Simulated scan of single mutants.
Amino acid sequence: MFKGRKLLIATKHKKENVIAPIFEKELGVSCFVSDKFDTDTLGTFSGEIERKDSVLTTLRNKCLLAMKENDCDLGIASEGSFGMHPTIFFAHADDEFLIFIDKKNKLEIIARELSMNTNFNGSEIKNEVELLEFATQVQFPSHGLILKPSEKDISKIVKGITDERILKESFNEMMKEFGKVYVETDMRALYNPTRMKVIKTATLKLASSIRSLCPMCETPGFVVSDAKMGLPCECCNSATRSTLSFIYTCKKCSHISEELYPHKKKTEDPTYCDFCNP
């Protein structure tokens, strides 16, 4: 279905470095990038352009618009969000989504990777000592930095800083002009190797999902659509809140399949039973 076809990677931040090798190996496609569509028009991390839509809507639009500009029927795009972890308080997280669209075969497959492996951070800095302490904390200079007058003020902004001399010079210039400086991590993939690793993990997930075929019609993307709770307690046999099965659904023919005991265990420890350990 995909071998020998051209696959557009909609990016201007070097994400093809991790995406292309995986997809060329797993699907036999020929990957390429193009500057015909500027993905930054849909939003920037540094705030110059606000992302107006949800992550998934932005992701889909990014891929489809880039495909349209390049007259291509096979495309992939990624979109990340950074902030507090949705379930683990006081922890930052990188939430990466990837989408694969095949217009020819009317396919859309999405993968997600939520990771606490991120250096996402920002702080108002008063002097060079604080600046260098922050830089060390967020893995500078292998990871880039951004300077601006304040967190919300983008009247002046210096991005992609990976050199200490430039960091100090930009900081001092901004201090003279505004009397304060806000420093934050540059979360664009080409300036953030940690984020690039998360994108790679999400790419592997996406490739695996594409290779998963429906047993009835062999359409790619036969992946988990739901999970059933109810794994029995090994002590009292009551249903627990642990996963009993995964439900797989085909987006094309709607075939449904249930996989029992996906975590390779048929009972749950009484520690996680609401009756044995209320």
Rank of each mutant, 00 (worst) to 15 (best):
N121L: 09
A91E: 15
S238T: 11
K251S: 14
K15T: 12
I154D: 06
L56N: 12
H13G: 00
V223H: 02
T118C: 13
L64I: 09
N17D: 13
K103V: 00
H13Y: 14
L190Q: 12
F45R: 01
S225G: 14
S78W: 05
P21R: 08
R165K: 14
M175L: 15
S209L: 12
G28P: 03
N105Q: 10
T267Q: 11
L56P: 01
D163I: 07
P86R: 08
K12V: 09
M196H: 03
R241T: 11
K168M: 14
H263I: 09
A111W: 03
P215Q: 09
E50M: 12
E130K: 05
H143L: 11
K52T: 10
F45N: 00
C236R: 05
F275Y: 11
I110A: 03
T162H: 08
R211M: 14
L107R: 05
L231M: 04
I49N: 04
N172S: 14
S155V: 10
C217Q: 04
G28R: 06
N121C: 07
I19W: 06
K152H: 12
F178W: 09
T162V: 14
S170Q: 11
G43D: 07
V18C: 06
C214P: 01
C276E: 05
D153L: 09
F222G: 00
E26H: 08
M196P: 00
S46W: 03
E130C: 04
F97M: 10
A111E: 13
D71T: 12
T203Y: 07
L27C: 08
P232K: 01
K265D: 00
A227K: 15
R165H: 09
R112Q: 15
C273V: 02
K152S: 15
A66I: 10
C72H: 00
A207L: 04
I76F: 01
I110S: 02
L74K: 01
P262W: 01
R60M: 13
M216V: 13
F134W: 06
I99C: 05
F246C: 02
K197G: 05
V183D: 02
F89C: 05
S142L: 14
V224F: 03
F32N: 04
T249I: 13
F100N: 01
M196I: 03
N117A: 14
D94A: 15
F2N: 05
K104I: 01
T44C: 06
V138K: 05
D94P: 06
D38R: 12
D38M: 14
S142Q: 13
I154M: 10
G83V: 05
L213D: 02
P220S: 07
G43H: 08
E177L: 13
L206F: 07
K264M: 10
I256T: 12
L244K: 02
M1K: 07
P270D: 08
G122S: 11
I166K: 13
K14E: 12
K106Q: 15
T243V: 15
R112V: 13
L167R: 05
M116N: 11
K14M: 11
T87S: 10
Q139T: 08
L260R: 09
S155L: 05
A10Y: 03
V223T: 15
A66L: 10
R241M: 10
M175T: 08
A207Y: 02
I125N: 01
I157T: 06
V183N: 02
A202E: 09
L260I: 07
I19E: 00
S34F: 10
K266Y: 01
Y191E: 09
A111D: 08
C235V: 13
L42P: 04
I22Q: 07
K156L: 11
E259G: 04
L131F: 10
K106V: 06
E169N: 13
